[in-house]
């Protein structure tokens, strides 16, 4: 337990809270990479997922794709792109986007699929266009599931950003790998605690958004 106290003392040390390479800088880098990865992936995956969910076509390939993606080792992708594309932001962001896409796709198509087909038919009978059905019926009703997909993608990317520090990128993973190289266990532990806290805060915040976006009056399952 003394090691845990040392790690907490490492985090609390005021010199780690200002200047380049300090905890706030690494934290912001971590958040920025996560946002970048999830954002770019969302631009691609959410429209495709909604299209698949709305038309109910192409579900097979999408399910197969998200299943296969689970087998992809994140560390492998990060090092592969790092070696291939060299130092810079392109390599890690490419890995983040690829790893975020399956959860976002699954969230988007299940958001549409979870809506009662009778509700969709009723909307159609009332003269709504397909676009109106998607944006005014399916998306509002399925929003918690869509956000659930974003949450899983974000958590996945937070973990991958940490691994990407290994190939020389910023983020909180820096502390872990620096500690590893120096055999400095308190620093590794301190970095680990920070990453875990960040992952949990993001997870809980998006869970809250899921709750808040649940349509009023609709039965919660």
């Amino acid at each position: 337990m003394t090691q845990l106290l040392e790690a907490l003392a490492w985090i609390a040390d005021p010199t780690r809270w200002s200047g380049p390479g300090s905890i706030p800088v690494r934290l912001l880098e971590h958040l920025w990479y996560t946002l970048l990865g999830v954002g770019i992936a969302a631009l691609v995956a959410i429209p495709v997922g909604l299209l698949v969910g709305h038309t109910r076509r192409g579900r097979g390939p999408v399910v197969a794709l998200s299943g296969a993606a689970r087998a992809l080792p994140t560390l492998g992708l990060v090092t592969l792109f790092g070696l291939w594309l060299g130092i810079g932001l392109t390599a890690p962001v490419l890995a983040f986007v690829i790893l975020a896409i399956p959860s976002l796709l699954a969230g988007a198509y299940s958001a549409c699929e979870a809506v009662d087909p009778r509700t969709v038919d009723a909307a159609r009978a009332q003269g709504m266009t397909e676009w109106q059905i998607l944006t005014r019926v399916e998306v509002p009703l399925g929003l918690p599931l869509l956000i659930g997909g974003v949450r899983l993608a974000a958590v996945q990317v937070v973990a991958t950003v940490m691994l990407a520090s290994y190939i020389g990128n910023g983020g909180l993973g820096r502390f872990i790998f620096l500690g590893l190289n120096l055999s400095d266990y308190p620093q590794m532990l301190g970095g680990s605690i920070l990453v875990v806290a960040l992952a949990l805060v993001i997870d809980l915040a998006l869970r809250l958004v899921e709750r808040l976006t649940a349509p009023r009056g609709a039965a919660r399952t």
Partner: peptide
């Protein structure tokens, strides 16, 4: 929540 914790930490 446990599943949200990255593996390396």
């Amino acid at each position: 929540l446990l599943y949200a914790i990255p593996s390396l930490p």
